[in-house]
Amino acid sequence: MRCRQAQRLMTPTVDNELEPRQQHALDQHLTACAACRQELAATRTLLEVVARLPAEMSLPPRLEEVTLHRMRDAARAERSERRPAPWWRSLSLPALTVAAVAVLALAVGLRQFDVVSTRSVDIPGRLAAKSGHQAASQHQVASEAARTRVARQEPRRASEPPKYPPAELASAPDLFMDLPILRHMEKLEHFDAIRTTTVDEAPDPSAGQQERSSG
């Protein structure tokens, strides 16, 4: 869970409205995130203060009438000042759909062409241009997705562990500590049996594929 998601759950959790699963996820996040703990404490205090306010107050009839009148005036003024609808709103839904499909097809086609050309001609400059193009486009997607994609494309650099790790890491750090064991788990489970196996013929190539697919 990320801080943004946690913050959305803060009011419901103060009101005891979360499902157990959500509550648990939030609790896990809070154990690892001091900022969200502070935020939750502030939310709790605020809601308590609000709850102590009187539920109803008697207002002078004149005040209600004036307030409603002003709200109507404000809404009217906003409607008159609103900008004209953008040009694409005038297009029909089928036209928009066709345009979207065309753009998607073009994007897929370009990507295929890019992949094929990169594979067929292994020029470092081309690869550099490709990664540069991808890096530029990554600025347009959500920060998490961009971070993941960058991590997949750039060579891994040694970096300091963050003070506030990503939710996946914070929720199960031992998974990542034991990652090498998990990657080789089948080998390790049958370690002794494998070591005593005799190899007297060339290995079956299909077995190699299985090994690659299962780790």
Partner: peptide
């Protein structure tokens, strides 16, 4: 521990790839 955090972080980055 800091060493464990570093190991987990390194492996997390590998996992992401």
């Amino acid at each position: 521990s800091p060493e464990e955090q570093r190991r987990a972080w390194d492996n997390y980055q590998r996992y992401q790839q």
